[in-house]
Design a protein around this nucleic acid. Structure first.
Lengths: 199, 199
DNA sequence: CACCGATGTTAACGACGGTTCACATCGCGG
DNA sequence: CCGCGATGTGAACCGTCGTTAACATCGGTG
């Protein structure tokens, strides 16, 4: 009954690269491929060389696993975005470039997480879903602030729609997987995203 | 045991607006909100004022229902795209504009279908999934042809990635639902999509 | 060495959900 | 009016799956 919760859900937990992290990674992969509801606890276990119920030594429930996964993604995105903006100085154009390259890199590095994030948020207990949505909203706001300063004549509603559209564009990566070398793909997506953001 | 199959899966079936169509529409809405695996046959039935098992008078199975829905979407998209391109003359730029406005209109008119299409394709029997993917591929090729003629120096792989990115951009509609009046949203998305496609 | 916490295993439970069955109802063509 | 096909209902069936229980193993610590 001793389910260890991470000291802080955000810590990448470099100290213990084992099992728990292993499970989360394998689960993310499987969830991305088939959808969280279609993969059983046994599947996740098998993916790390363990039987199904063993999962419960590391997570309170399947939902808790998904919750931690989605919260982790949202937290990494929010923290990363703020960091990049802060490091980009005061020019909104430079900040936008920083945000775009950050999002592109994240999407190319974590296609599975990107897929799961916007497909399986719905199959989460309401409370956890709300928490994730709060984080997502704050991430969007980072973008909205930059976009709004870049085009002050536009309302924030338009800026928000613009932000979502850019996310959709960049997060299309999992659909056009691997046909282009990563460098080229990154450059293409960044150029398109910037053009769309400033059109 | 008499499950009527539509004369042709593509016909919008204007002759019989009832039940079958009604069920498909309600199911699409529910699937979009919660994910196809999370909604039960009873839910779909209740949405049209009927008990669960009644569904089986109109569809062979829940999977068959989802299959028909997804195939319908893909067929409408493919047919519409070809039509618009043909009507746009020979100028690739004009053809692209036609494709963009078509996709934007479709996405704004059918947010539920857009959502279901790229979330629940995975929870389809392999055969049906393959059929849908074939249609989708052909739709993408329509775009790739136009994009490739518009920028001949780019490889078709890049054009394909470009097409997927534009889809992602336009299909972001369900995420930024209703905050902008439709006209304004359509204009914004079209401008962004065109800028991204030609960046 | 003995104990204990961490980690697994197998077996069983219980709920949910898709599907089928046997039975009503109802409208329409002969 | 009779009967049949279409449509719907409630009850029951059954597989899947998340979860729990009872029991093993094993490495480290007092």
């Amino acid at each position: 009954m001793t389910v260890r919760q991470p000291d802080s859900a955000l810590s990448a937990d470099a100290a213990r690269p084992s099992r728990r992290e292993q499970i989360l990674r394998a689960a993310a992969q499987l969830f991305a491929e088939r959808g969280s509801r279609a993969v059983g606890v046994d599947d996740v276990g098998a993916a790390v060389g363990v039987t199904g119920p063993a999962i419960y030594r590391h997570f309170a429930s399947k939902d808790a696993m998904l919750a931690e996964m989605l919260e982790g993604i949202s937290q990494r995105l929010l923290a990363g975005a703020r960091e990049r903006v802060a490091a980009a100085g005061l020019d909104p154009a430079a900040q936008l470039r920083a945000l775009v390259t950050f999002q592109v890199d994240f999407a190319l590095d974590n296609p599975a997480l990107i897929t799961v994030q916007d497909r399986d948020l719905g199959s989460l207990p309401t409370d956890d879903a709300a928490a994730v949505r709060r984080l997502q909203r704050r991430y969007v706001e980072v973008w909205v602030d930059v976009l709004a300063r870049l085009r002050p004549e536009e309302g924030t509603d338009a800026s928000r729609a613009r932000a979502h559209a850019v996310f959709g564009l960049v997060n299309s990566t999992p659909h056009s997987a691997g046909r282009l070398p990563r460098e080229q793909m990154a450059a293409l997506l960044a150029a398109m995203a910037e053009a769309a953001a400033t059109a």
